Computed example of a mutant assay.
Amino acid sequence: MASVFIVIFFLIIQVFANRIISSSSLGKIKWMSLAGGIAVSYIFVYILPSLHHEQDDFGETAFELAMESELYFFGLIGIVVFYTLNKLAERYRYKKGTPVEDHFFFVQICLFFVYNMLISYIMFAADQTIPQLMFYGVAVGLHFMAVAHDMFRENNQKYRKYGRYMLAGGILSGWLIAEFTPHSPLVLSIVFAFISGAIMFNVIKNELPSEGSAHLPTFIAASFGYSAITLFVKIVFEW
């Protein structure tokens, strides 16, 4: 039941992200710096350690002669796939004689529909307690907000009209798949590794604020603050 409330939280963020940012007294620059700082922390204090743990389990159960880097390779695939698709989508910006914005936005929205679906799937299919879901859900929710804002900047009219609902549909689809399909540890490990690579790429590309759009104190405080809290709860609750 708790997962339902977390999904609703994600959907609200995805659909109303730009309204939340624009109506908040925190301001857009601080919001993006906050999301970027937490996202970077999330990678180093949760994703990378979890990927290492998954690799250990994967090596013990998947193959008799397992290497020590299979899942890291799937993470590399995640980075390469999203980088390649992003570059192919960007070509539409410069292709003459085509409805550039429509093509570019369509490719992006389909890509991030799958992206949101896989993040949502791994979030709810993994073996996590309710407190873990709630705690890490904050970082994931802010990441969804940053993705939404980036899509809004690319084409605000189409994003408002149907883009945000497609991205919200990706979140909902991932949750439904996690809730109503059997979970294979092998598949979960591979999907986690792949989407981890994709998250790393998107955080570095979209959430590390540039010099002109960054509030450095907020970014630093978010990075180290979230890291300290994460390490503390890991020690106290043995996550």
Rank of each mutant, 00 (worst) to 15 (best):
F105A: 10
F105S: 07
F106G: 08
F106C: 09
V107M: 13
Q108A: 09
I109G: 08
I109A: 10
I109F: 05
I109P: 09
L111I: 08
L111G: 04
L111D: 07
F112W: 04
F112T: 01
F113M: 10
F113P: 03
F113I: 07
V114Q: 00
Y115F: 11
Y115C: 00
Y115E: 00
N116Q: 03
N116G: 03
N116R: 01
M117C: 06
M117D: 02
M117P: 00
M117F: 03
L118P: 00
L118C: 05
L118I: 09
L118S: 02
L118W: 05
I119P: 00
I119E: 01
I119L: 10
I119A: 04
S120W: 13
S120C: 05
Y121K: 00
Y121L: 03
I122P: 02
I122R: 00
M123G: 13
M123A: 13
M123T: 15
F124K: 01
F124V: 06
F124E: 05
A125F: 10
A125Q: 05
A125I: 09
A125E: 04
A126H: 13
A126P: 03
D127G: 13
Q128P: 02
Q128T: 14
T129W: 12
T129E: 10
I130S: 15
I130K: 13
P131N: 12
P131S: 13
Q132C: 08
Q132D: 14
Q132L: 11
Q132F: 15
L133P: 12
L133S: 12
L133Y: 08
M134Y: 09
M134H: 11
F135P: 12
F135I: 09
Y136D: 05
Y136K: 08
G137R: 09
G137K: 08
V138R: 02
V138N: 02
A139F: 13
A139P: 05
A139R: 04
A139H: 03
A139G: 05
V140N: 04
V140S: 04
G141H: 13
G141T: 06
G141N: 11
L142T: 10
L142P: 01
L142E: 07
L142A: 11
H143I: 06
H143P: 01
H143A: 02
H143N: 01
H143L: 12
F144I: 06
F144D: 01
A146C: 13
A146Q: 06
V147T: 12
V147H: 08
V147M: 12
V147L: 14
V147Q: 05
V147G: 01
A148E: 08
H149K: 08
D150I: 05
D150Q: 12
M151N: 07
F152N: 13
F152H: 14
R153V: 04
E154I: 09
E154W: 02
N155F: 09
N155Y: 10
N156R: 10
N156H: 07
